[in-house]
Design a protein around this nucleic acid. Structure first.
Lengths: 153, 153
DNA sequence: GATGAAAGTTTCGTCCT
DNA sequence: AGGACGAAACTTTCATC
């Protein structure tokens, strides 16, 4: 899938406001609505745009606690890996999960209502028998959240 | 700001598709379009919904590298803290930044085109004189990204 | 690609309960 | 609060250049 400069412009505009109308986007990229809509639909169907999300104030919706969790597994057998990853995908509180370089195997971003709620989740993870170690780093203050991607050009 | 059950329903629906029309949302929450739009606008103006973003395929837009960076400062004086945080907010490659509990002071999520690009950013951070230590953990595989928040009810 | 037309939606203010 | 109406804007498809 190729993304040209006009596509990047469209993406950049959408990152500022993901609900802009096609007419508005078209005007800003100096295209008429028809070709602009064709590009937008192509970006969506080809998976460049994987979806649209509102950015929510976590505090207000009762998820004021964000925790970054480093997880180590006992081994890297296929059973352990897929077992753990499937479990993580099932846990709604985990909003991001990556395998990472360094001493931990996984880095997760987890949201919770409060410590009680978070404790439940940790215990749930500890019950997974491929999990060897869990280290929790609590987010104390947000300096920057969900900033737009720095698209080149 | 209070968020009632209907508001939560609206947010939940929007998390599945952030570009749904008000008419569609109204139908799903069993409300007529007028009061539904009033609620939506209130959620937006009161900051419960802070904006709308397309979820982009980072690989396709040329930002295939994601790095989690742990930063320690020399001290926690107001000058060091605000100086570092202002610098972080200026860096477009930093898409998330939090102060965290544990051995590091900050945890950043950084995107880059490649290692060369990332190296530039690290050097830029190392030039900040309040920065004592930088540890980079490269994301190797995404297991789950930008999952919807688990709204209660 | 652009343009224009046409039918169907959506938004959003206003007024009513 | 929610619901109904109407005007203006927007979306989407189609044909044409």
């Amino acid at each position: 899938m190729k993304v040209d400069e006009i596509d990047l412009k469209i993406l950049k505009i959408l990152q500022q406001d993901g609900r802009l109308s096609n007419a508005e986007i078209a005007e800003r990229v100096a295209l008429s609505p028809s070709p602009c809509l064709r590009r937008l639909r192509r970006l969506e169907t080809e998976g460049v745009i994987q979806g649209y999300r509102p950015q929510l104030n976590r505090q207000v919706v009762g998820l004021g606690m964000t925790v970054f969790v480093q997880v180590k597994l006992h081994d890297h057998s296929a059973e352990s890996v897929t077992g753990f990853e499937d479990a993580v995908r099932e846990m709604d509180a985990v909003v991001n999960a990556h395998t990472v370089s360094g001493s931990a195997d996984y880095l997760l971003e987890v949201v919770a209502e409060d410590l009680i709620d978070y404790d439940r989740l940790v215990k749930q993870m500890q019950r997974l028998n491929m999990v060897r170690e869990i280290e929790s780093n609590f987010a104390l203050q947000a300096v920057k959240t969900e900033a737009p991607l720095p698209l080149k050009l």
